[in-house]
Write a protein that binds this DNA or RNA. Structure first.
Lengths: 160, 160
DNA sequence: TACTTAGTGGGCTCAAATCCCACGACTCGA
DNA sequence: TCGAGTCGTGGGATTTGAGCCCACTAAGTA
């Protein structure tokens, strides 16, 4: 990964009548270092994340290759169901999207329901260091309430 | 930290119809030693704090840079979710602001609700030794009531 | 009193965010 | 096969808000 800076910042945005969302320049720029190709991922109900596609591929391939190696080595014989589920998730969890002019992207069918925001609704766009997250407002608040107290400890753990 | 003096003093200020707030000269001067760049932080509901950006960076960057270094070294591969959470919290907790002419700053969207003061409302600006705090009046009073009795003991502990 | 300085209000401008419309591809049913 | 409706895409028009600047006022000072 480039020794890039963390992607940080918090913004309010409205979703179009046609489910388009414009990403603020501060976040779009570091995200699209080399291409306007992005990966949209279902994180949890009420939250999607956006990744630079090359970073994402690197991250994903590493994991997938490990699993493949294990399968080939016969080390997942008894775990067929788990492997199936992994495949299923790989299929549905993420998708390529493009940033069009004005940094606009279309939130595809399937991701709309997951995000849970109707056309014309509001979302929060948040920099999450290595990616950008799109939050339904109430999910964001609930999550924040829960995690804010952990902040100090988290920095300690990760940096130690 | 520079062997600067403590930043002290208490002032009433009005927040503009446009959410502008002018920082008293006594507090703004020591805060802006070298630049008009400041960091605005969400401390607790009803209270924001303002930091000299170089001091703040020193305080935070130490930890953050460690995390960055670990990421670049590939040592947090399995901890993506934690890194994301850290970034998310970094994004929402603080933001750069600038002091314009007359030491006026704009309280950004997101911090307004947190402070809980509507346009045209009153706040207290308080020097807190190493930073400046902006308080909603009632939050300030509640806090004061609770902490005042501890003052004597605190001075003893910190100075001994 | 005249002058200076700090705090506040408000006008102007520019850029960004949002609104809105038009076009073309595609689907579906008659 | 054709027309109507839907959806993705592009781009112009409008609005909103942040930054800049100036004017007014009140308080402190010579």
């Amino acid at each position: 990964m480039a020794s890039a800076d963390f992607i940080l910042g918090e913004f309010n945005r409205k979703i179009d009548e046609r489910f388009r969302l414009s990403i603020p320049t501060e976040l779009a720029e570091p995200l699209c270092e080399n291409s306007t190709d992005l990966i949209l991922v279902k994180e949890r109900p009420g939250c999607l994340s956006l990744w630079n596609s090359t970073h994402w591929k690197a991250k994903l391939d590493a994991g997938v290759n490990l699993v493949k190696a294990k399968i080939n080595a016969g080390r997942l014989e008894g775990r067929t169901a788990d492997v199936q589920m992994l495949g299923r998730l790989l299929s549905t969890r993420h998708r390529n999207v493009q940033l069009a002019a004005k940094q606009r992207m279309l939130i595809p069918e399937g991701f709309r329901e997951f995000l849970g925001v109707e056309a014309g609704g509001e979302v929060l766009i948040v920099g999450a260091a290595i990616c950008v997250e799109i939050w339904r407002t109430d999910a964001w608040l609930a999550n924040l309430e829960q995690q804010m107290p952990e902040f100090g400890g988290l920095l300690d753990t990760l940096s130690s």
